[in-house]
Simulated assay, not measured.
Amino acid sequence: QKYLNKISGPLLDRIDLHVEVTPVPFSELSKAENSEPSAAIRDRVIAAREIQAERYKDVDGIYANAQMSSKQLKEICVISQAGQTLLKAAMDKLNLSARAYDRILKVSRTIADLAQSPDIKVEHLAEAIQYRSLDREGWAG
């Protein structure tokens, strides 16, 4: 917490994903549980990158969602009324900045691309909001 307090809010705003990684107990590590194979994850990432390459093929210098402009954000990251409600609640509760809002939309578009979804769904937004853990009060405390 002491270290985190030294990092300025504007710097944190420029980081797309904030995830607290806690130690995993041995009992969890040793479980014989089926998980998604790395090859399947790689295939999903390649497919998402292809979706983005197609999306930005006519735009010079942009090849990924993270690079889109504010104008493109409004055109590409259209969300439903339910999504707007969720994002507004998160913005209010977490006291997020306009920059964090943009980052959440870009990350949610990428999550939707990974799911090969043409639309950003509420669950994509919810996941993207979860990746802003350093914005939450009391993080690591």
Rank of each mutant, 00 (worst) to 15 (best):
Q1C: 05
K2V: 09
Y3A: 12
Y3K: 12
L4D: 08
N5Y: 08
S8Q: 10
L11P: 09
L11N: 07
L11T: 09
D16C: 07
L17Q: 03
L17S: 04
H18N: 08
H18Y: 05
E20T: 15
E20H: 12
E20K: 13
T22R: 12
T22Y: 04
P23G: 08
S27G: 08
S30M: 08
S30E: 12
K31V: 13
E33A: 15
N34M: 13
N34D: 15
S38T: 11
S38R: 02
S38N: 03
A39M: 05
A40D: 15
I41G: 10
I41C: 09
R42P: 00
V45K: 03
I46A: 00
A47P: 04
A47G: 13
E50Q: 13
Q52V: 05
Q52T: 00
E54P: 02
R55Y: 02
Y56N: 07
Y56D: 06
D58H: 15
V59F: 07
G61T: 09
G61S: 11
I62A: 00
Y63D: 14
Q67S: 07
M68R: 03
M68K: 02
M68N: 00
K71C: 02
L73K: 04
L73Q: 04
L73G: 01
I76P: 02
V78Y: 05
V78D: 04
I79Q: 01
S80T: 15
S80R: 06
S80D: 10
Q81V: 15
A82D: 14
G83E: 03
T85H: 12
L87F: 01
L87R: 00
L87W: 03
A89T: 15
A89K: 13
A90L: 05
A90H: 01
M91D: 04
M91N: 11
D92Q: 13
K93V: 11
K93W: 04
L94E: 01
L96Y: 05
S97E: 04
A98E: 11
R99W: 10
A100L: 02
A100N: 00
D102E: 11
L105I: 08
K106F: 04
V107D: 03
R109N: 08
T110E: 06
T110M: 00
T110H: 03
I111E: 05
A112I: 12
L114R: 01
L114G: 03
A115P: 10
A115N: 15
A115H: 13
S117V: 04
I120W: 02
K121R: 13
V122G: 06
E123I: 12
E123L: 08
L125Q: 03
A126E: 11
A128E: 04
I129E: 05
Q130S: 15
Y131V: 03
R132D: 00
R132K: 03
S133I: 04
D135V: 04
